[in-house]
Nucleic acid binder design. Structure first.
Lengths: 216, 216
DNA sequence: TAAAAGTGCGAACGCTGTTTGCAGTTTAGA
DNA sequence: TCTAAACTGCAAACAGCGTTCGCACTTTTA
């Protein structure tokens, strides 16, 4: 058995001795992503992934040492869909805001990505490319590196925050069904008052404001 | 069997007919919280909670219709530890910043609370008290109610963001162990450059700035 | 050519949430 | 007062999960 070191990224994907493996980490990750896209993260069971690949569950443990490894692989593969090689606008703030938008779209496209990425193991190669891109974009700024890393953390955190909310908010009257006029007068008033709809570009405004406040 | 309606909050905790139940929802939630505090959320299994109460796993289904109900109960009970009856300072911003600080401490005290609260079912009574408190605090502001609800969402989101990060950040050199000088020069430079430590009151500053920007 | 290392996998293990069926208990209505 | 309905507690089982074991087979190394 392959010695079970900390993360899958520090293990070679295969040895040199035995027969050529019939599958690859990328193939396994792709099969698991397809299952999770269709039925959520809990649909990507070891047995289901193996079935998708035409093999048996136990065989997956030749490629992974645990299901956590599978989730790490899925997160990394999904991050690979985030384009980082577009042309730079020359404005660091515009580039970061655009990146956040693409990242939010990615999280919306793969709803399983947020819970899978939150069980923070070590970062995979794609996550390191992401950090590298952010730091390169912020290179001209005179801030310290600690502040920049903090800013990246807040950036991804804000994306996660918006990704956790559904794109179209559910009916609040249903969610707060048990609100009582005695105990929750303000809440009930807020639910019944129509009021103007919120501005739709909250995400961009928030990202811009927070990054500007953090880095200048 | 109790008809399995949407959430546990819309079901009566017991009928009027049979013998008096030997336990209560509050007792069950307390036992589950103790287990989760000690061994994480996955330690609060139905069997373990039942064992803590000196009963059998199947008996819990007289009080809950699923484990999701148990988690809803735990989240609500934990939110009950958040004091909302303190004196108001008269300054809405100060009150909300103080609330955020107490909330962050709560999430740190119960690390299982964040993942448990993120699987958004409907809100429990304690969550509605929380919303009510926020809206009451923001009552003097001239903003629309939609903007205020948005601000509350961003507030709890920022708390979640900081709660997800460990209090003492882990060694970055270990997390980014696979960074290579060719592909990640900025990242490696950021890791080796000592630089000044980040200011410790990032949380308060961020909350204050975001709320001010969102509500004025 | 023998040994070492790797691969695929059927079968099992321990654990999980949940359901079923039954015996005992309390209340509601005639 | 008495029967029927509703409720409680729970042993036992079920289906599914991640994971391990042992074995036959294949490829590379020395």
């Amino acid at each position: 058995m392959p010695e079970t070191t900390r993360s899958i990224w520090s293990r070679p994907d295969r040895g040199t001795r035995g027969p050529q493996p019939e599958h690859s980490r990328a193939e396994i990750a792709a099969a698991a992503m397809a299952l999770a896209d269709a039925g959520g993260l809990e649909a990507a069971t070891m047995r289901a992934v193996a079935g998708e690949l035409g093999t048996a569950a136990a065989s997956l443990y030749r490629y992974l040492s645990s299901r956590d490894d599978l989730l790490d692989l899925m997160v990394d593969a999904a991050l690979g869909e985030l384009p980082l090689d577009g042309p730079s606008s020359g404005d660091w703030l515009e580039d970061l805001v655009a990146l956040a938008g693409r990242q939010l779209a990615l999280y919306r496209r793969h709803p399983w990505l947020l819970p899978a990425a939150m069980r923070r193991g070590t970062y995979g190669p794609r996550a390191m490319d992401y950090f590298e891109y952010c730091l390169r974009t912020m290179a001209p700024l005179p801030c310290g590196t600690a502040a920049k890393m903090e800013a990246v953390g807040v950036l991804t955190g804000l994306v996660s925050l918006f990704a956790a909310q559904p794109a179209a908010p559910a009916d609040p009257a249903g969610i707060f069904a048990a609100a009582t006029p005695q105990a929750h007068p303000h809440l009930l008033a807020a639910l019944t008052t129509p009021g103007p709809p919120p501005e739709p570009d909250l995400f961009d405004r928030l990202i811009r404001g927070v990054l500007r406040g953090l880095l200048t």
